[in-house]
């Protein structure tokens, strides 16, 4: 490595390091603030166990549903040409632009409409568990769609065209050629959607309420603890959330990310 290269790497390391240092200090401050005894009581509390369980299940469900929408929608926006495409492109970004709590409020208002009443009688949504998933989905699908769209944009359409001249149908080319080349994007979109869903707060609070042992996901637990002044427990729950989220991301990236899927 020559002298100027080394300087370049050092400069990059310094600029990135400032941020990494900030994050590390935040974590250390949290660790120092939370009492060790808090963790012992937390692990035994049925409320926290339930909210962790619900958080994990709902975020995974939201991720799968979001990917089922984001992949086709991203591909459509990337490859298809149709009237109003520019508008649709911006329209799908709405959940990214507006504050998340607006999504929650809008869902509450939507589910008050009388035409949805029969559905709500059959499967209660608002202020029940399905509301958690719907609120998470509405937000994270936009992020996943954006990621998938730029992934497909970066892929040259040539490969699909070659596959189609070799006799593949559009659908076959999509499954056999496009998706395998988009695997990094799929992984990014999936993990981004999951992480967003796992930490989603505003819309869940609005649309699912903060009902203990029912619609209480971890961010809601943190809010409930803060609102009764128990900052130590709020910090302890945050640390549990951070460790779960980081473990999941590391696990996914090291297994799925390294294997040639």
């Amino acid at each position: 490595m020559n002298q100027s290269d080394r300087k370049f790497w050092w400069a990059l390391g310094f600029l990135g390091g400032v941020y990494v240092l900030l994050l590390a200090m935040l974590l250390l401050a949290d660790l120092q603030y939370a009492r060790v005894s808090e963790f012992a009581t937390l692990v035994e509390s049925p409320e926290l166990r339930y909210s962790l369980w619900l958080s994990l299940i709902s975020s995974l469900m939201s991720t799968i549903i979001a990917m089922w929408i984001a992949v086709p929608l991203g591909y459509l926006l990337s490859r298809a040409q149709f009237r109003g495409k520019g508008f649709l492109d911006a329209f799908v970004d709405i959940p990214i632009i507006v504050p998340p709590v607006v999504i929650g409020l809008s869902l509450v208002i939507l589910f008050r409409q009388s035409f949805l009443r029969p559905f709500d009688d059959w499967l209660p949504v608002a202020f029940h568990v399905p509301a958690v998933i719907l609120a998470q989905c509405t937000v994270v699908t936009a992020f996943a769609t954006r990621t998938m769209r730029s992934t497909f944009d970066d892929l040259s359409p040539r490969q699909e065209q070659v596959a189609m001249t070799l006799g593949c149908s559009r659908a076959q080319a999509f499954w056999a050629v496009v998706l395998p080349s988009a695997r990094t994007g799929l992984l990014t979109a999936g993990t981004l959607a999951w992480a967003r869903a796992f930490g989603e707060f505003g819309p869940v609070l609005m649309f699912a309420g903060a009902i203990e042992r029912k619609t209480e996901v971890m961010p809601v637990s943190i809010y409930l603890q803060l609102s009764s002044g128990d900052i130590e427990t709020a910090v302890a729950i945050s640390l549990v959330m951070i460790s779960v989220a980081v473990s999941v991301l590391l696990l996914v990236r090291s297994t799925v990310g390294s294997r040639a899927i």
């Binding site: 339930y50 369980w53 209660p124 029940h128």
Partner: peptide
């Protein structure tokens, strides 16, 4: 699952 969640009333 546990809790009062799920899809039941």
């Amino acid at each position: 699952g546990p809790g009062r969640g799920g899809f039941r009333r």
